[in-house]
Simulated assay, not measured.
Amino acid sequence: MLAFANAKINIGLNITEKRADGYHNLETVFYPVRLHDVIEITDAEELHCVVKGISFAGNEMDNICVKAFRLLQQDHNLPAQQITLLKNIPVGAGLGGGSADAAFLIKLLNERFNIGLSVAEMEDYARQLGADCAFFVRNTPVFAFDKGDQFEDVELDLSAYCIVLVMPPIHVSTAVAYAGVKPVKRSADLKVNITLPVSSWKDSVTNDFEISVFKEFPEIGHIKNKLYEHGAVYAAMSGSGACVFAIFEHQISLPDLEVNNRVYYNV
């Protein structure tokens, strides 16, 4: 049984305060994009995970999909499965690939074994695995707040645009990204700004991580500038990761950026 777990981009990201539990409160808009990992589950004598495609650092049995399976298994007595994961979403990109894999596995298990979990119950399981994991259960555009795990629906449709992802050969650790930001509560409202024309977002919809990440990795800032030079209506880094996305009003080719980076068109 297969599932196709899609990535997301963060449109705007404001770090608003440091929490007592060590996490940060934030505001962002999650928007799903058409770049997919593929997950397959099959019966097995014991739980096993195989990761193919983009290389995965570490023990495959430490994969978040295994953690998701065990989380449901402890409550619902699931039989052992082999989880085969084909990774197409870049790792450490700020695109939520791991979180998507876990959430889609929860949905896949719920369907295959007729567990009967509601959407809200699947979200509760997903929240135990990662701050943005629950987003992928409903998988529709939302305004996310608190740790990024509480949501309000937003009316946002970018289907008329061409969205391009540019992933440089750089890994930005979450620790490095957060070390360079100072939480600030904004007077401007991201929920309001996101309803404005996309052409106005350049000045009103920002990612707090960009200042420190661009300072540490100027190549990422260079990619953003190049995307604007190519005519992007809006460009930004997604989340705390290295990937930069751009919104164009038309189909485009970026051969100069393909030389040193992975470029994904019309996602």
Rank of each mutant, 00 (worst) to 15 (best):
Q81A: 06
V50G: 07
G98Q: 00
G53M: 05
T16D: 01
F104Q: 00
L13E: 02
N14G: 12
A100E: 01
K67N: 05
V51W: 01
S55G: 01
D101R: 00
A102I: 06
S55Q: 01
N110R: 05
Y31D: 06
A80M: 11
L109E: 00
E40M: 08
N10V: 02
V91D: 02
S99K: 14
G58Y: 03
A20T: 13
K67I: 04
H76E: 03
K67C: 09
I41V: 08
P90L: 14
G96P: 11
K67G: 04
A102S: 03
V91K: 09
G98Y: 04
A103D: 02
H48E: 03
N14E: 11
T42C: 08
T28A: 13
T16Q: 06
H24Q: 07
F56K: 13
N25H: 14
D62C: 03
D43S: 15
I83C: 14
I54G: 01
T84R: 10
A93L: 07
G12H: 07
E46S: 12
L108M: 07
D75K: 15
H24P: 14
D62W: 10
G97Y: 13
V51Y: 00
H36F: 12
N10E: 00
G12F: 10
F113H: 13
E17V: 14
K52F: 08
A103L: 01
L71D: 13
Q81W: 08
P32I: 08
